Structure formats: structure tokens, C-alpha cells
Computed example of a mutant assay.
Amino acid sequence: MNTAAITVPNANRALWEKGDFTRIAAAMRESGEALVKSLGITKGMKVLDLGCGDGTTAIPAAEAGAEVLGVDIARNLVAAGNARAKALQLSNIRFEEGDASQLGNLAAKSFDLAISIFGAMFAPKPFDVASEMVRVTRSGGKIVMGNWIPGDPTLVAQILKISSAYSPPPPEGFVSPMSWGSESDVIARFGAAGVPAANINCTKDTYRFVYPAPASKLLEQFRNFYGPTMNAFDAAAKNGKASDLQQELDLLFNRQNQASTNDTTVIPASFLRVTVRVP
């Protein structure tokens, strides 16, 4: 057998291609636009968005006048991003397939700003992710990450925590993506890439999920289209515990919904906002 011809499945790609994250991203557009407005993007700035999905932050960056490259591991999301850009008649943005831990096709020091909002945190080999982000960002440029915080009581951290309790144990050597929400881990990873701690700022920020239907309907989107939750329900069903998982998540979504009417959903989720100035 010619083992060199065997293609090893990419588990990370399979996770994000399993569902349709565009259905979740629709509830995240408002906060994505607000975050981009806070970045001071100017016309002609070269921006990289890693783990970009279908453009929740990449498209507002292009609308602000930047030259934007969106990179994502999921081919369906790359296609969706390019379709959104075409529909909006944006010629200053493109989306392409790529792995945040291995950006060999991108030249060193080629971006003024590298963004990754809940994206690169899910890539394998976090030290490689930090190294690549530093490598492709010019000296004096910035890296901005948004990372969910481990143990946080708000929505997404709790979704992932509850889901993991119903899922098989991770493989040996697995590094939790939630570790990107730890300031000490962030400093260690960018420090290994040559960034002094004084150049790294971590602050707690808030993202909002806004959905034009009750919270239980937003949960349906996560159950049917969000890879980690889909995997948890698959595993729970095999153990006869799918209804238990559903009840836990339904309670979580409804308890955290801050909307003033029963037919809408507004749920805040805390995250660690990381700003790195590249030396």
C-alpha cells in the first residue's frame, strides 16, 4: 500500500463544515460591526481575518475601506463569505481556505492588522497560531483576538462546558481552545513568538447574540448548525441523554436572555479581547 497517498482527515475542518455556521453568525453581526468600528481601520489598510467564517468582522472591515483577506478552514464558509462579498459588490475583500496554524502561503509582514474573533482559538497548535499571526503582521502593526473565557458564566463558555460533559473525552495531547481565554496562556504564546508582555493587552469585553425569535429558537440553530453542539447531541443521543442535554441548554439560553419581549433574544457573552503590538 502506498501510504503517502492516504489523506489524513482534518478534524478541525470536519467540525466546522459539519453544520452551517452562517446560521449562528446571523445573530452576531451587530457586535461584529461594533467591534470593527473600535479598531480604527482606515482606507487602504491591509487586514487579515483568521477563522473569519462568512465575514462577520471581515466584511465590516472591507466596508471601512481596508484591503481584507479572510481565511477559514471550512470550505463552505469560504464560499459563503465570497458570496456575501459579491452580493455587496465589495472588490477589496476575498476569502480563501487556510489553517491559522500554518499560513505558509502568506508573506511575512504583509498585514497592518490581523484579526481573529472566536476563530483561530479553535485551531490546533496554539503556539504555531501565535507565531504565524506575528510573522504575517508588520512591525508596528496590531493583532486583535476575541477568545471565549474558560469557566465564564455567560453563554458560549457555558454552551461549550455543558456540551463537553456529554461528549467523549478529547484525544491525547488535545489543547482546549478555551485556554486562549486565559491571559497567562496568551502572554506565553505570543511571548514565544517574540512579543514582550508589555506589548500585550488583555481586557474583558462583551459580545451580544441578537436573534429575532425566542431563545429556544436560537438554541435550535446551535443544535442543528453549530459543530461543537451538533457533536455533543450526537454523542448524547447514543447514550440516551439527548433530552437531558436539550433541557440543560434550553434553561441556559432562556435564563440568560435579556430581551424585553418574549419574541426576541438578546444574550450577552463575555470574552477576552487581546491586543498585541508587533515589535
Rank of each mutant, 00 (worst) to 15 (best):
159 I>M: 01
42 T>C: 07
191 G>K: 01
64 A>D: 11
195 V>W: 01
233 F>G: 11
223 R>L: 00
112 D>V: 07
38 S>P: 11
128 D>C: 09
210 V>W: 00
134 V>K: 08
71 V>S: 09
150 P>V: 03
8 V>R: 14
116 S>M: 10
72 D>H: 11
146 G>L: 10
268 P>Q: 06
264 T>D: 04
29 R>V: 07
193 A>S: 07
102 Q>I: 12
240 G>I: 11
39 L>W: 08
256 Q>A: 03
194 G>K: 06
237 A>S: 15
96 E>A: 10
145 M>T: 13
162 I>N: 03
41 I>G: 04
32 G>R: 00
205 D>Y: 02
101 S>I: 10
54 D>F: 10
133 M>W: 14
185 D>Q: 08
206 T>K: 12
188 A>M: 11
219 L>N: 00
34 A>L: 14
74 A>K: 13
208 R>G: 02
253 F>Y: 12
76 N>E: 15
24 I>G: 01
11 A>I: 10
229 T>V: 13
58 A>D: 08
19 G>D: 05
89 Q>D: 12
196 P>C: 02
244 D>Y: 14
277 R>S: 14
263 D>S: 08
29 R>Y: 06
29 R>S: 04
73 I>G: 04
232 A>V: 06
169 P>F: 01
221 Q>C: 01
25 A>V: 11
29 R>W: 09
173 G>R: 13
150 P>H: 05
257 N>P: 02
158 Q>V: 09
78 V>S: 08
256 Q>K: 00
265 T>E: 04
26 A>T: 00
80 A>F: 09
77 L>E: 02
82 N>Q: 15
177 P>G: 04
132 E>K: 14
260 S>V: 11
169 P>I: 04
14 A>C: 02
36 V>M: 07
126 P>R: 06
102 Q>R: 15
75 R>D: 15
184 S>G: 11
69 L>F: 14
213 A>K: 03
143 I>M: 10
134 V>A: 12
63 E>T: 09
247 Q>V: 12
42 T>I: 13
63 E>W: 06
42 T>G: 09
198 A>R: 12
55 G>Y: 03
51 G>C: 15
241 K>H: 12
194 G>F: 04
166 Y>G: 08
130 A>L: 13
211 Y>E: 01
33 E>D: 13
165 A>S: 11
102 Q>F: 11
45 M>E: 15
245 L>S: 03
174 F>Y: 04
161 K>S: 09
50 L>G: 07
205 D>M: 02
38 S>Y: 11
120 A>C: 14
93 I>K: 08
176 S>I: 02
23 R>A: 06
130 A>D: 13
24 I>K: 01
21 F>N: 00
197 A>H: 08
184 S>P: 05
166 Y>C: 07
255 R>Q: 06
58 A>K: 13
229 T>A: 11
265 T>L: 03
150 P>W: 01
129 V>K: 01
